[in-house]
Amino acid sequence: MMVDVLVGLLPVMVMAVVVFRWSAVVEVGLCVLACLASEWLLNLVQKKPQTLGDFSAVVTGLLLGLSLPSGSSWYICVIGSVVAIGIGKAAFGGLGMNLFNPAMVGRAFVMLSFASQLGASAYVVTDSDVTVLSQATPLTIAKQYASDLAAGREVAGNVEHQLQAAEKFWPLFIGQVNGSLGETSAIALLLGGIYMCLRRAAAWQIPLGALLAGFVCAALARWTDLTPFTALRHLISGSFLLGAFFIATDPVTSPISSLGKFIFGLGVGIFTVLIRLFSGYPEGVMFAVLLMNAAVPLIDRWAVPKPMGAG
């Protein structure tokens, strides 16, 4: 099952390396190694059997690495990984027991701890030979544009210009835009995500719910002029697809029944768009997933399938 996740992530990793070159290899590699090392060490001190062979630490490391911006410091990768495995997973009793998605716990920790190095501005690197890094992420541009409009300010000419560039469909679809390492290429995420669903490593109800709710919310936002992006642009920009197909579908931290999974997906989609529109952050997938993780026990209690022949 975990191996299917690795295969599903393969196109995403390839695109990350194509777009961001070496920094993708180094950061993702560092996260994976740090996750494996923390898991090994924690098992050792707890005198538990070693569990590196289940590949769950590898998946956590990959997802954490792919959700970081290009050029993150090595200690951000390491601290994120240690928190992901230590607090995100081992503290709850190991694989299968954790309430929150470990990779997102790690990322939330480093994001709040090193705000300046992981905030929107940190994504822009002007002196890099990777061209996409010279532009702000599409969602940051959209956010700036929307907040300028909302505040009644005149939108600066360069923002207007940047928005026109960021709105283009093909760069967003292929992945030639700035963003976290694994989130830019919609086509790679769709390919890997659909593979995971077909292999049943990911429950299709979750991405379906997330895409559906995300689309409706974003379309409403567009209709009321809260955002310059169309609903489709919202779905293929930022880490929406990465979140819907790879992060929210972690079986451990999502509901067990089909209906529950669908509701969970809806929640992830709604909160992602709400955070994008109304919070200080340009992107909301991480907090949306963590928020819905917390709701899983409640959903599981409510969405118990009715046995055949009951009522």
Partner: peptide, 10 residues
């Protein structure tokens, strides 16, 4: 291995 709550049994 531990139950991952994947829901296949369901």
């Amino acid at each position: 291995t531990p139950c991952l709550r994947c829901g296949r049994c369901v």
